[in-house]
Design a protein around this nucleic acid. Structure first.
Lengths: 265, 265
DNA sequence: TGGCACTAAAAGGTAGTACCATTTATGTTG
DNA sequence: CAACATAAATGGTACTACCTTTTAGTGCCA
């Protein structure tokens, strides 16, 4: 755990005027002195307000723009506008991290399965009747699509994501929603594999339908069972893809032990 | 869901030389053409290599520095060095987001409880005997500390985080580890409340010990039961803190319905 | 009067230069 | 040999000039 130092000392000195200004503005935004939609002074104005060169101001703005806190427009009426942060900013950050720290598919799957179970239970308990009906309608469309001879895989992926989204929305938990959104890219590659393979397509679609049906009639145990099946299929498909080497690994998977694993950081 | 556009079109034109260069360098880093620890050319060199002004190069570097991909040092042998991304970067990004999008304590608790259950099951299955012994030793220290008349709350928080860290490490799942780390700051405030209140201190410590004991002897059901107790205590403590208003809200909590909730976006 | 074209002004974007500050290596001197 | 001084590389800052984009006028012409 990176042990956030809470910044007891401000890093002081060094070259940082731009970071300083950035933090300054960031603070102003976070405690509401600058509200979303508001416009900051022009670079040339800030340049004099901060008593500094324009380049420094520009760098500060670039930093906050990168963080997703500012949006910059050119022309008259242009300038830096305060923005609401979007989950996409966090997702992007995480995606970058995951590119440098690849995760074994099995780890991804087991994490997602855990999330999925909780989400499903919440969705059953909290989803409205309308939402459940809509979910069912969507999954039927999905199944129909997958039954076709040569299904549109792009549309399939789209629909699959929509289904997941509807489900997580029904759970009424922004945290689950955000975490799922943030990890989406990590998932999609595997899911794609699942739909590319004709041997799995229909089974997965049917499984989705069964899951949703269980949700609609509020049978949590049956829903969980379906989810187990889903991830069982996914594991099977993934390991088939990745040559026998990984299959052996999977077989050994239950024989746990003291394996110390590579740590991050 | 922000529906990551996969950037099918590069945003083309507009003012972007710096973003361009930044993306350029980022790509080079991500596909390994630039490895962590390596040094980029000096700003003045890149200025000519990219056929642009130095300010643009500096802005690009600032962007990547903000992303956590670069580290910049001054002086001879200074320059921009490629860095391994750390989870702290993602956590920071998420923390920022959470400041703009506060989450109800109950949502945080229910998410954490879900994670905790999975982590515990994994830890029981995968933790080594040594790890379990170490965990037990630590939790005994913790309980001893909490039994004291005037326990050091800072140390307590520290120990609590250590325990959680040890537990999640035993789960052998970087994803769980990262998500817990990323949400740590969100947790800590509530946990602190739990330890500040003398009425809960000892009970929570005892509950921690029971949980660990269940883990050590590999009794998952008992461990889960303990976890339920833990979060039950936490909920009780939080709602007591937040005046009767929230208590009423909690009481209503099980009566679900069609409440459409504020979306993020 | 309505619409279209041109212009002006306000912003951000880029280029370039000069100089400051920091860090490291190297050389010089007691 | 060690302490100190100096030089060189490199990021940090300031300033200035000019380009490009965007918006708002402004005025001409049909």
């Amino acid at each position: 755990m990176e042990n956030f130092p809470q910044s007891p000392f401000i890093p002081v000195q060094s070259g940082r005027a731009s970071e300083d200004i950035a933090l300054n503005l960031e603070a102003a935004i976070l405690d509401g002195r600058l509200k979303p939609g508001e416009r900051l002074p022009s670079e040339r104005d800030m340049q004099v307000q901060f008593g500094t060169g324009r380049g420094v101001v520009r760098e500060a703005i670039k930093i906050l723009k990168q963080k997703g806190l500012l949006e910059v427009r050119k022309g008259v009426k242009g300038g830096a506008y305060v923005r609401q942060l979007e989950m996409a900013n966090v997702s992007e950050s995480l995606a970058l991290f995951l590119k440098q720290h690849p995760v074994e598919p099995e780890k991804l799957i087991e994490f997602r399965e855990s999330m999925d179970r909780s989400i499903t239970l919440l969705a059953i308990a909290r989803g409205s009747r309308d939402e459940k009906a809509a979910l069912l309608a969507e999954v039927l469309r999905f199944e129909a699509l997958m039954r076709g001879a040569d299904p549109d895989l792009v549309a399939a992926g789209e629909l699959d994501r929509t289904l997941n989204l509807m489900l997580v929305r029904m759970a009424r938990s922004p945290l689950f929603e955000w975490v799922m959104a943030a990890l989406q890219m990590g998932f999609s590659s595997h899911d794609h594999a699942l739909y590319e393979n004709p041997a799995y397509r229909e089974r997965v679609a049917a499984n989705w339908r069964e899951t949703v049906q269980a949700i609609v009639v509020s049978e949590p145990m049956r829903a969980l069972s379906c989810i187990g099946q889903h991830y069982s299929l996914l594991r099977e498909c993934i390991t088939q893809q990745h040559e026998p080497v990984l299959q052996a690994a999977l077989a050994l998977n239950s024989a746990s032990g003291d394996r110390p694993e590579g740590r991050s950081s």
